[in-house]
């Protein structure tokens, strides 16, 4: 029997590994690396969930980033992402395997899929988390470093093993740590590029346990039809990997075009950098959203 309030019947950490066109995205590896730490703090197992058409060959990569086990669900109907098919498969796997934690990358697809799954599973979902903790001691260390809270003058339940999911809110002016105490799995989508990727471990990749699961997915389950998937040749703004970022803000309002041109010229002079932008500059329409950095944009680690 599946009962989302029977906390004790759930165990293990599961990461949904998003594969598009035969490639698992980097965000999934970040989530696996973090999931490994959470699973160790809980003394439990980490699994990756890989779904698609002919994707089994990718399972080793999931092991290499820390998973003990990979669940693989294959079907021709899973070749291209659809909300209905992916929600059904993920919910069915959660019903069968009962993980206590389920993490999904907060990509455009993850943010479509996560809420639908959480609603079907009747559980909570934290959106766009940027920090995750099981161990209360580690959470308090995080607060000491990144908040003004006087941690040591307050009482904390040091035995608590619930997932503490921290995320920015109100445009990054406030941080909130969210918990999901009464339902399982504890679900979060996680912001791409924030959590650090572990070193790839070939031995773990070779020894990972692969379990194939059947699905009864049929055409009738799909209520939307994907007519085409188009890759745009627009220049991809690689903020995540950039060594130099020249960021613009509201200050360019007088002449946005000139401001952006100046910023890219400076970026070029400093060794091929990238132009970043504040939320205000993006909201005002000066520059497209892929340039946004910060709490509500991309988390970046440049030298300059």
């Amino acid at each position: 029997m599946y009962d989302c309030t029977d906390i004790k019947s759930f165990s293990g950490v599961m990461v949904f590994c998003e594969a598009r066109e035969g490639k698992i995205n980097t965000t999934s590896f970040e989530l696996l690396s973090e999931g490994r730490k959470l699973a160790d703090d809980l003394g439990t197992e980490l699994s990756g969930l890989l779904i698609g058409k002919d994707v089994k060959g990718l399972a080793g990569q999931i092991g290499g980033y820390g998973a003990d086990k990979v669940y693989v669900v294959e079907s021709p109907l899973l070749e291209t992402y659809t909300t209905d098919a992916y929600t059904k498969v993920i919910s069915d796997v959660v019903h069968e395997k009962k993980p206590e934690i389920l993490l999904i990358g907060a990509t455009n697809i993850g943010r479509d899929l996560g809420p639908r799954c959480a609603a079907r599973l009747h559980t909570g979902l934290t959106a766009d988390a940027t920090h995750l903790d099981i161990d209360t001691g580690k959470y308090l260390d995080f607060l000491r470093e990144s908040s003004t809270i006087d941690v040591d003058s307050m009482k904390w339940d040091m035995e608590d093993k619930g997932l503490k999911m921290t995320r920015p809110a109100f445009g990054g002016h406030l941080m909130a740590t969210i918990i999901c105490p009464r339902f399982r799995p504890q679900m979060s989508t996680v912001r791409p590029g924030v959590l650090k990727c572990a070193e790839f471990d070939q031995a773990k990749a070779d020894s990972v346990v692969i379990e194939e699961l059947k699905t009864d997915l049929s055409d009738a389950d799909l209520k939307t039809r994907v007519l085409e998937v188009v890759k745009e040749t627009k220049e991809i703004v690689d903020l995540l990997g950039a060594e130099v970022i020249v960021s613009v803000g509201q200050g360019i309002a007088k002449d946005p075009e000139k401001g952006i041109a100046l910023a890219s010229e400076l970026a070029e002079v400093l060794g091929g950098g990238v132009v970043g932008a504040s939320r205000a500059a993006v909201d005002a329409g000066f520059i497209s959203g892929d340039h946004q950095v910060g709490q509500t944009g991309k988390t970046v680690r440049p030298h300059i």
Binding site: S146, S147, I149, K164, L174, T177, I178, I179, F183
Partner: peptide, 13 residues
């Protein structure tokens, strides 16, 4: 009826 609760909220430094 809300599965999630705010455990702590704080301003970033």
């Amino acid at each position: 009826g809300s599965p999630t609760n705010v455990y702590k909220s704080f301003s970033p430094p």
